[in-house]
Design a protein around this nucleic acid. Sequence first.
DNA 1: GCCACGCTCTAGAACGTTCTAGAGTCGGTG
DNA 2: CACCGACTCTAGAACGTTCTAGAGCGTGGC
Lengths: 333, 333
Amino acid sequence: MRAGERRTTLADVAAEAGVSVALVSIVMRDAPGASAATRQRVLEVARRLDYQPDSRARLLRSGESRLIGVVFGVQHPFQHDVLTGLYDAADKQGYELALSAVTPRRDERTAIGSLLQDRCAALILLGPQIPVAELAALSDRMPVVAMMRGVRHRAVDVVRTDDVRGLRLAVDHLVTLGHTRIAHVDGGRMIASAERRQGYQEAMRRHGLDEHLRVVVGGSGEEDGVRAARELLDDPPTAVTVFNDLSAAGMLDVLPRLGLSVPGDISVVGYDDTSFSRLAHIDLTTVAQDIDTMTTLAVARAVERIAGAGITNREVVIPPRLVIRGTTAAPRG
Amino acid sequence: MRAGERRTTLADVAAEAGVSVALVSIVMRDAPGASAATRQRVLEVARRLDYQPDSRARLLRSGESRLIGVVFGVQHPFQHDVLTGLYDAADKQGYELALSAVTPRRDERTAIGSLLQDRCAALILLGPQIPVAELAALSDRMPVVAMMRGVRHRAVDVVRTDDVRGLRLAVDHLVTLGHTRIAHVDGGRMIASAERRQGYQEAMRRHGLDEHLRVVVGGSGEEDGVRAARELLDDPPTAVTVFNDLSAAGMLDVLPRLGLSVPGDISVVGYDDTSFSRLAHIDLTTVAQDIDTMTTLAVARAVERIAGAGITNREVVIPPRLVIRGTTAAPRG
DNA sequence: GCCACGCTCTAGAACGTTCTAGAGTCGGTG
DNA sequence: CACCGACTCTAGAACGTTCTAGAGCGTGGC
């Protein structure tokens, strides 16, 4: 592209085709009000001049933006799976997605701020870590849907998995296999960590395993799982539930080197059913979040709020399901 | 947010502050032409009314968009590292990034198309898989920078790593350690695969190891590494270079289970120095792409082209460097 | 005391689109 | 033959911002 070369506009197409700007607009939008003949002629000219509509001007004029902002963390593989689902869901509803990433050097506030200026009609936040007060303030300005995090505030919509139940599923599964000494590696400062930890504790108590309660501080990355594995070594349990699959994968990789075979010496359960966990060599038993349902619901919720519908049920909690693979088995004799 | 509630505009702020719209605009842009007193007063009112500038209107009017579109693949961890770098680089130059993801159900054409309507000033494509002809057509419309892929076309800017050299480094390292039976697992239909394969072949020939040339079809995911590992089993080499870290990680995980210890029985070299490869339990010897330099250059190139500068050197090829970690060692006596 | 200058501010056009209101044409109907 | 309705098309305003041109006004130099 040479600099200074202006791009083709409706006016250019109109002039070339010998019709009015409004008519070209009608044709481009595929709106009623143009004859088949002109329609074809205009389309032909548009194609020849390589016309591309300017969504900025379009949205400016029409007011509604059909654009949903999404804030995601570049470091979380699970959120990539969610992104994929969100694109599908938004596509079905005729919406576009505007992505803004959180990176190690770009925080959530910045990511949100950049979307605010883009006049998104709504915001979907994946596992937001910012305080409730800020989320609430944000929701004054536009519909906000938080995914994978509970938010105790009536103005913020929430679509999340029942994490308490997720960990109950995991613990129940292990108990059924015969385990009693079951530890939990939590998510450290991750926002969802508290609820999963709580789910673990409740489940253990229900099985009368209070004395075996053991929580190790972890995190959301592979390295956290590796660290936690080392910490478990002094007195290894026969099973462990882990905050997420990534951390579990780190653990899975390091346990054999530390002399513990999986699932022979120790069973491992992850969380998220991240796409890599189903790979043959990882084959991780894990708690699956229902991404399809969650993304569909999150987008639907956003769209309803954009339309201004009165929605009563602010929080949707989706039940998880346990995916049993190769990293869990009965404890040794 | 209640539906139908219009958001605050410059006009609202102007009316409230008792000044003209133009003056508010001046204040908001921090442009010269307003007294300190009014500046403060206007800012105060803007804050009170919770004013957010409308970037659509702003860009529509001012023509230049200070927005660079980026197309990335949601499935490639390496590209997430690149994204992080791009955000940094763009930030320094005062540009914003508009992301568009390629997912399993959203192809590159769609991803590019959505950015085209957004009036980005330039496009940066991470490892684009579309044919050169399409890239060329695209570059008629706007500056296009391709990263991590060679493009034989004078209109498309390229910032990439010298992959031939990268594989030479890997092979040289292995040869120095004493290996001769060195195999290569390629990237299958990935666009960068050809050059890395070629680098491997050239390096092997230079060392007079023609008879040991062995290329196994692989891919870009963990599962490809797993598959390739199985294929190597019938006649295991003492070392293998792999298309990328993700594939190498899959291989690393499965080799011990197949009875081959790393690096005892077999050395493994990856590619990309993806963030997980430096984790203690993976500790992968790999060829590092210089992300900082590449992202800085890609953004700089895009910005120069937006400014219309005459740029002679269309392709920048960055030398990689070898990062030696724990997955390579001398072959067994 | 006048003019030039700098500073602060304003009016109005412009960006590329959509939308509203209405103008022109044509065939059919009373 | 006048009229109506359907259809096709057009003119011009509007969206929220930036930009250009210039107005008002105090200040300082001569």
